[in-house]
Amino acid sequence: MNYGALVFLGAFVAVSLSWFGMVLSPQVQLGRQTQGTNSVNTAELYPVQRPGLAREGLEVYRANGCVYCHSQQVRQSGTAVNVILTDAGTNAAAAADALMKSRAGVTDANAVGLSAGLPKAILTDVDVDRARAAVEALTSAGAKAEIEIVPVGTDIAWNWGIRRSVAHDYLYDSPVLLGSLRVGPDLANVGARLPDANWHYRHLYAPRSVVEGSAMPAYPYLFERRPIQGQPSPDAIESKDGFEIVPTSEARALVAYLLSLRADVPLFESPVSVEPPPQETADTNSAAGTNVVSPQASASAQ
């Protein structure tokens, strides 16, 4: 019996279905994203093309298989909504009263409790509508309150990002190095978390010299050992006995790429309230290698 036509038809249906599902529909869904279509709160364009050196670094990252141990995608499981009272106004009693009468579901609020220790969260992890009702009630009573939108999830608790990653974050990456294994930490925001280039050089050269018991392999071949000529190079990571160890152009590109990895601009798709910029933190930042660093510091370090 001749099943040729049937086999062909079966194969055709299978191929076209998967083409529709895996090529056409993602293209229809996400294919038309452009720069700047979604940034909120600012008139800034996002994302911006990585600088040239960082784009070369992406190739080094690929070639060295960093993607086998590091992902670049922050996941989020939910969103917490808090109401922060910044000012109880002149009539705290009226504000407390308004709060209790609103749809916010607050049952006991009194003037003394409300006006103590501001600013403070008066409602945490509530429904958005309740939060908005509370803010409305407080505003009408002359007090000032803000809504705080806080993404939650294990990745975010690990300090790997302030919000989830969305397609927009990867607009200029080709290929997109999402990764699927997490032997090491997620790197989607490593540029914001570890903005110090020297830390990265030392870490790549000998991970255990900066992170105790690190399971990350060393990449000594990205560095060059050479005799010191005259002044030692400013970016030498080690110098001893007339020799110094300096990063090669590949290492420089790779670190430029790592520092360019940050996806913390608030986007419409991934609501998050950005805290006001912290006060002068210049002194604390100079302690290289600390993991908690303000975004300003990282911007200047790039």
Partner: peptide
């Protein structure tokens, strides 16, 4: 995107 279920919800969660 997850955890949001529709555009209205994404809009409701916008900080402003």
């Amino acid at each position: 995107y997850a955890p949001y279920r529709n555009l209205e919800e994404v809009r409701a969660y916008q900080p402003g």
